[in-house]
Structures are given as structure tokens and as C-alpha cells.
């Protein structure tokens, strides 16, 4: 019996969904304030993420983040319940060692630390450039874990210089394309949409209309003094 409810039984059983942001902090992300825009977009997407998680009582959303530049490190290493999740700003620090980020994620996707039972994890990759290390080996490490293989994957290319074919390889589904953001509004919309990928991991729509396959909601540029070009 639940403590406050005068009803038999307790709350609905749920499974964890591990959500891992993999975020590019290379030097180029510092150009034209892209890293600031990314920080802003993620912070702004938190309520959206919380609301997506709230809509499924059968899932418990836990969020972490890896940053990569010269090497990679856990920006938030504790799987944090989304209701307690707050965003600390990322800072740029060098190259684009995406392979190192994949290897960190692969370590987290072993059992343990993953529990015996869960919903598919979500890997959300954001990058504006070309990887500078052996990203293929890192991606193989992800694919070699049972949870990594089953992960729901979303990817976002910022600007025109991102390696889109590499991002497509990360998605590992020929029908999916990485998202593309060419201005702050598109970035905000794409990050917001990626944040709700928990829905695809926890309550898939049978016709494939879940957030992973659907194109992102396009926020139209209202041209209110924002620079349309980066």
C-alpha cells in the first residue's frame, strides 16, 4: 500500500532509461558562441525532458553527460533522476576526440554498472566537426556491449563542417539521418527534440512515428535581431 493513497498496491513498477549526452567541446564550438548556444539549448530543454519522462510512469529517466575535446570526460557522471537534473556549462578545450567519448559511454553500458533490467538506453551525440581520434574503435566498443547495441541513438550536426556520414554511421540505421542545426533556433529545437527521445525508448509507436524517426519540430527563425549566419 502506498503511504498516502488509500488504495491497494503501490506505484507502478518502472524500468530505468539511461540517457547519455555526448557533447562536442572542441575549439571550433567556441567560435561565434556555439558552445554558449548549446548550453542554453540544453538548459532550456530540461523541462521538456522532464515532461517527456513524466508522461511515462513505466520509465525512470536517468541523465548523464560526456564532453569530448582533447580526450573525453564525464561532465555529469552520476546517473541523475531527471527531476533533479540541472545543467552546468560546458567549456571548450581542444580537439574532437569522439572515440574517447564512445569508450567512456561503452564502459557505462556494461552490466554492471547497468542494471539487469532496463529500457533501451539513449545516446544523444552532438558535434560540429570531424573526429580527431579513432572514433570507429570507440563506436565498436559501444556496439560490443549488449546495451550499446540496443541503444536508441540520435545525432545532431551543428553547422556545415560536421562529419555527417560519421554521424550516420553512429545512428546505425540506414533510414535515419542526423539532425542539422544551422542557427541558434534550429539548435534549440533539435536539442529539445533529442531530449524527448526517452519516449521512443520507453513507449514506441508501432508505426514508427516516435520521436526518433520523425523529423524534428522546425522552429522557424523569427529573425528578431539574431544573426542567421554563424
Amino acid at each position: 500500500m502506498s503511504d498516502t493513497f488509500d488504495l491497494p498496491g503501490g506505484s507502478m513498477a518502472s524500468r530505468p532509461v539511461h540517457f547519455i549526452w555526448l557533447l562536442d567541446c572542441s575549439g571550433s564550438m567556441g567560435v561565434n558562441g556555439k558552445i554558449a548556444e548549446l548550453n542554453f539549448a540544453i538548459r532550456e530543454a530540461v523541462p521538456e525532458m522532464q515532461s517527456a519522462a513524466r508522461s511515462n510512469p513505466g520509465a525512470t529517466l536517468l541523465v548523464r553527460a560526456v564532453s569530448f575535446a582533447s580526450g573525453a570526460s564525464w561532465h555529469i557522471d552520476e546517473p541523475t533522476p531527471v527531476d533533479q537534473f540541472t545543467w552546468e556549462d560546458l567549456h571548450t578545450y581542444g580537439g574532437t576526440d569522439m572515440g574517447a567519448a564512445f569508450r567512456l559511454a561503452a564502459g557505462a553500458l556494461q552490466t554492471p554498472p547497468m542494471p539487469q533490467r532496463a529500457l533501451p538506453p539513449v545516446l544523444a551525440l552532438v558535434s560540429d566537426g570531424q573526429p580527431t581520434d579513432d572514433w570507429r574503435a570507440g563506436l565498436r566498443a559501444v556496439d560490443d556491449t549488449p546495451w550499446g547495441r540496443r541503444a536508441v541513438r540520435v545525432a545532431l550536426a551543428i553547422g556545415d563542417d560536421a562529419d555527417k556520414s560519421m554521424l550516420k554511421e553512429f545512428l546505425a540505421n540506414p533510414e535515419l539521418e542526423p539532425l542539422q542545426a544551422k542557427n541558434p533556433r534550429q539548435l534549440a529545437a533539435a536539442i529539445r527534440w533529442m531530449s524527448t527521445a526517452v519516449k521512443a525508448a520507453s513507449t514506441p509507436k508501432a508505426d514508427g512515428a516516435g520521436p526518433v524517426q520523425a523529423p524534428p519540430p522546425v522552429a522557424l527563425d523569427k529573425g528578431e535581431g539574431e544573426d542567421p549566419i554563424w
Partner: peptide, 25 residues
Amino acid sequence: LLLMNHHPLEGALALRIRCMDEKAR
């Protein structure tokens, strides 16, 4: 779900599934 607060098809067979992905569902 409303009356039982549980899915009618998720018993022991569901607990045997480690990753509740689309194939499992």
C-alpha cells in the same frame, strides 16, 4: 492499468527480458 496499476501482459515473462526494446515488446 487504472484499476490494477500494472500492465496486463507484463508478468514473469516480462521480467525475463533484460532490455525492453521493440523486439521484446
